[in-house]
């Protein structure tokens, strides 16, 4: 019988359950470690770091991530992960993660915590004001026009409908659906200064 690595864990887990009937404390400790994954939910994911696209299995229990390891079924990484991928669970179990919106007023020396509603309201007001005051409906451009066989340069007032006062950078860290949504939103605001990691 071919035993995959995951089957091996399952088998060894049940094997250890029998071993607990013995008198040796060591296997009991080992069992505790195995059980953490045994009853955890497995969710497949893809590593957020470089673009190799390694498969990951995220083990969760009670809303917490208890382990992340390489997905042995994934054809590219076949269960392996690099140091970054292997420590990805620390992106969750992490006191430095931002958990609330923060605001820094003009001239302030510290952040202050604010509510999402307030932040979204304030940002929207600023975006609207900046867009409305820097929106350019038309622009004078030079075009070449053919008159008979000759090309003549002339200046025209062309429709451009763009917002000059706002720029955006980011992000290759977003999912495809989010990137698409973001470019749609930005172009809906009239932005043309749209860039991200691909350029640098």
């Amino acid at each position: 019988m071919a035993v995959s690595r995951r089957d091996f864990f399952k088998l060894s887990g049940s094997g250890l359950a029998v071993a607990t009937l013995g008198f040796n404390l060591a296997p009991v400790e080992a069992k505790a470690e195995d059980l953490a994954i045994r009853y955890a939910k497995e969710t497949t994911s893809i590593c957020p770091y470089c673009a190799v696209g390694c498969g990951m299995i995220v083990h969760t229990l009670g809303g917490n991530i208890i382990n992340i390891e390489g997905d042995p079924d994934h054809p590219i990484n076949e269960g392996a992960l690099c140091p970054k991928g292997s420590s990805a669970y620390q992106l969750r179990d992490n006191k430095a993660r931002l958990t609330k919106p923060l605001y820094r007023a003009a001239g302030a020396t510290e952040w202050q915590e604010v509510s999402w509603d307030w932040a979204v309201d304030e940002i929207a007001k600023k975006v609207k004001k900046t867009r409305d005051t820097s929106f350019v409906a038309t622009s004078k451009i030079k075009i070449k026009e053919k008159i008979g066989n000759a090309e003549v340069e002339k200046e025209i007032e062309a429709v451009v409908n763009r917002t000059m006062g706002i720029a955006s950078v980011g992000s290759a860290a977003m999912d495809n659906e989010e990137c698409y949504l973001y470019q749609k939103f930005l172009r809906g605001l009239g932005l043309v200064y749209i860039e991200h990691q691909a350029r640098i």
Partner: peptide, 18 residues
């Protein structure tokens, strides 16, 4: 091209550039 970010291929494909 060995792209360096998980979705920099996708973010380029989705037109997040000027």
């Amino acid at each position: 091209a060995l792209r360096g970010e998980g979705n920099v291929q996708g973010s380029t494909d989705q037109g997040l550039l000027f």
